[in-house]
């Protein structure tokens, strides 16, 4: 009887530990993925913002459009 209880408790604790570790790994991996995606979004945002700032600064009547067009080598169209 005692042995059954001990085995059950040990199994439960073991399972809990295994799943806890597995979940931790999942969260860790997903966090990395999310971080990567957020970085990419931030990069894109930064590009859009930079471009927009330059476009906003442009005065069509005085400057040539060429001056407002910032090169964006990372964007492949």
């Amino acid at each position: 009887m005692g042995l059954i209880i001990i085995i059950t408790i040990v199994l439960c604790i073991g399972l809990w530990i295994v799943f806890r570790k597995a979940n931790h790994r999942i969260v860790e991996y997903a966090s990395l993925e999310h971080k990567e995606l957020k970085q990419q979004i931030a990069t894109q945002n930064a590009q859009i913002t930079t471009r927009q700032i330059h476009l906003d600064r442009y005065h069509f009547l005085r400057y040539n459009l060429q001056e407002a067009l910032q090169p964006q080598p990372e964007i492949k169209i």
Partner: peptide
């Protein structure tokens, strides 16, 4: 992750469109 990917796609599209 899906939400982030969607946002990334949207912003990429926006970026490409602007370009």
């Amino acid at each position: 992750e899906g939400e982030l990917k969607t946002a990334l796609t949207r912003i990429e599209t926006q970026n490409k469109l602007q370009e």
